[in-house]
Amino acid sequence: MKLLMVVAGNTFRETIRDKILYNLVLFAVLLIGASVLLGTLTIGEQARIVNDLGLAAINLVAVIIAIFVGIGLVTKEIERRTVYTILARPITRVQFVLGKYMGLGLIVMVNIAIMFVMFLGTIVLTGNAIHGSLFQAVELILVETLLVMAMALFFSTFSSSTLSATMTLGLFVIGHLTSDLKGIAEKSQSQLMEAALTALYYICPNLEMLNIKGQAASGLLVEFGYQATATAYGLLYAGLLLTGACVIFQRRDF
């Protein structure tokens, strides 16, 4: 556990010093600013628009960090050969992979927390009320981000940066369209197509399950049971991907 924390701490420090994170936070600030601007143009709907755009901005920035920093977690270490000196120490490959994941997880948490505080500040400044539903939405954004990070890490254990980014983005998009996949499968005339789409529906993560932004923006709370199930689902899926990443990384030659 100690070695895992050492790797996590180093990943956190190295990434936090990389200016890309500051740019992304700036991006969030601009988006939240835009939400305020748009909100003033729409009479009566300001609160919902501020909430909508704010949550969307946090989600987008967190996912971008998860994908683009996430794929670099392992591939950068391999391409730059820093992995040689680390794995030559008394550390297992599983500790290394989980340490990298934890380090980025910590960064994502800190970033989401900063963006959320900014977002809440924006709500207060525009004279609107802070609903509990916003906290629920942000918690599920965090779960989604941790899941996307696990996807990125999984793909990066066996492919290049570009391919990992493409596959992660692809799976992220499909993950938000799984209910459509099921609908298309049911309407499909071909049995083969139906089977393939149904299989895809069950294999791909259902990221829409983690999306309650619309409801939250209107100030409607989701049931605790749903929140807990969605969180458990997201974390379990991330856990499966991390297990896969560890198994593949364990067998790799460097």
Binding site: N10, R17, A88
Partner: peptide
């Protein structure tokens, strides 16, 4: 102890931080 060929290390760490990191990895 191991030194690879043409080593490349973490860009943003200072020399002291870098050695501290590897020291911790060695327990």
């Amino acid at each position: 102890g191991y030194l690879p060929e043409s080593p490349y290390f973490y860009d943003y760490l200072t020399a002291e931080e870098f050695l501290c990191f590897y020291g911790k990895l060695a327990g």
